[in-house]
Design a protein around this nucleic acid. Structure first.
Lengths: 179, 179
DNA sequence: CCTACCGATCGGTAGG
DNA sequence: CCTACCGATCGGTAGG
């Protein structure tokens, strides 16, 4: 009976938030998943809301720890990010960030701010890569629209289990920066 | 004290589902909104799940009752649909269908099927318009990708209250069928 | 269309 | 890290 790590809890919390959203995910479900009693979760996290920043910063780190992102060639780096995002979305059929974006309200300001940070970080880091090849304002718009298409394609994954829209989104987003 | 119409209840239920999702919206909130006791809602609807098909079919009807959709010119009709969808999303910052797509699970099969119908109807009706100008398979893909972009842009509306991504999505989606 | 209620579950805490 | 509990709220029903 080895101690349950904080990371394990965050990973399972992410699965719950992704699948059921913020309100639909319960601390009892999470406790069952990690094999603890519910009360014991409160030793590591002050409350449910505090799980949200942890879940999102873990996810951000995963996405941007792709090896090719350090490539000197901007296109190689950009393609790596886009494919990392798309692969993770296709794997899980939903975006935990998007589910939380729709699901957290003004009653959970810390969670709300974490969601903003999550997507703003995506935009900033993608913009930084594209800035090597185009002016800052164009890079920023291009990054934002890429995110919009990738996230939008999760609708088809969630509703119809159809990955084709995501594949087309990846192709279109990459083609947009190649011309 | 005139009777509360079924439509009024459905309209308020839509607002709740859009804002809080399926699990986050409570029958008590809905009762308060329409000025009834909670038990009285069950005279018109057998349960909470039954509200979902009503909410979505009302929304579908609103979108496709735009006058210009009957235009003989396919482009005029398509533009009317795209703008009707975008205007409604920009107005409310979220898509009730998307929130329900992420939020309903296998425990609510009727709601889940209603969500599928909702988006499949969008695809079918947009495809029907585009078929006047291109082969069926291209029309279907074009319609799906248009939906993906418009729905994806709700992320920026929900998180940053930024309408610019939606405006660019509308322009891009219309430009895609003009060339 | 109401009052009054049901069992189940929610997030969170006391106390060890 | 646990047992045991808190008040609040959930969807839904009985009975009038």
């Amino acid at each position: 009976m080895t101690k349950v790590s904080k990371e394990k809890i965050v990973l399972e919390a992410r699965e719950l938030f992704r699948e059921k959203g913020y309100v639909g995910a319960s601390m009892q479900d999470l406790a069952d998943k990690v094999g603890l009693r519910k009360a014991s979760l409160y030793m590591r996290f002050p409350n449910k809301e505090a799980l949200v920043p942890e879940v999102l910063s873990l996810t951000l780190d995963e996405t941007f720890s792709q090896p090719d992102i350090e490539a000197s060639d901007w296109y190689t780096a950009y393609e790596a990010v886009v494919r990392a995002i798309a692969d993770s979305l296709m794997d899980r059929k939903r975006c935990v960030g998007f589910h939380l974006a729709y699901g957290v309200g003004d009653d959970t300001p810390i969670a709300k701010e974490a969601v903003r940070d999550f997507f703003q970080s995506h935009r900033d880091r993608m913009t930084a890569i594209l800035e090597k090849a185009m002016p800052r304002d164009i890079a920023s718009i291009t990054a934002t629209d890429a995110l919009v298409r990738l996230e939008g394609a999760t609708l088809l994954l969630a509703v119809f289990d159809d990955p084709e829209a995501m594949e087309r989104a990846v192709d279109a987003v990459l083609a947009a920066v190649r011309q």
